[in-house]
Amino acid sequence: MMYMNTKKRDSSTSINTHIRIPVICDTDTVQALILKDAVRMVDVRKLDEYLQSHIRSAVSLPLSQILEKDPSGIIDILKNLGITDTMPVVIYDDTFGALAARVAWTFQYVGHPNTALLEMTFSQWKSMGLETESKNNTFPKTEHTLLINHEIQADASYVDLAKEQENKFLIDTRERLNFLTEHIPNAKNMPYTMLRSDTNILRKPEEIRRLIENRGMSIDSEFITYCGSAGTLSGLAYYALKLAGIKNVKLYSKSFRDWKMLGKSKEEFKEANYWDLSAD
């Protein structure tokens, strides 16, 4: 079960016995955890948006603050936000989950596996009339261990080898026209737009599984996601694949911009004027 339903859970869970939260956290679970003070909510929107209104008890961590940091810098952030090694962390944004996903992946990468995405955006949370506040939350500084999880990260040289290997799939999560124009050889295109639903940042696990299986890929394979540059869209896809039950997923966090800067080979398609179909 990737989704958790609080109604079925033992209500005696206390702040001292931290629960292990699923990849995507539903609103019922989040609300229950907030009530018990048993979660650190992290808002990755811009600071002024946070100061206007945010989910109760949330702290502010705009995405820009983590992108250039090395792992020990990220650990410092976790400490400053009052996050301990085992505390559940739930992250949200207002950018269909892509910014939240990038931050969540970063936390997991430096050694905080107990991290999840809120199932919806802040706008959706608000439109459902769920609780918000505007006070700037701070928490006492904590200790946090640095423990890099190399299993979930890929760099260009890893991707270069993986793209030729069977049972490893490279997933390009950019939109179709960008993919058609150029991509890493052998990559498969799963635009981030196909992973979301009308109400949630991600579709149901069985739907994502169907999209993968339709492409002839086994969920027992290894998957590496990438996007244009910052690892945000591919971060969201990373969580989509985790939600679908895939064990071995890696994020090529520097993505296609890095690949191009290194001058690595690309597949291009110039035999059609597909950009002229766009009505934008």
Binding site: L177, M194, R196, Y274, L277, A279, D280
Partner: peptide, 20 residues
């Protein structure tokens, strides 16, 4: 948005086409 190019196309025979 999910499966095509984010645009739809009205044809000359009253179809609507999704490309790529």
């Amino acid at each position: 948005e999910a499966f095509s190019i984010g645009s739809a196309h009205v044809s000359t025979r009253q179809n609507i086409q999704l490309h790529w």
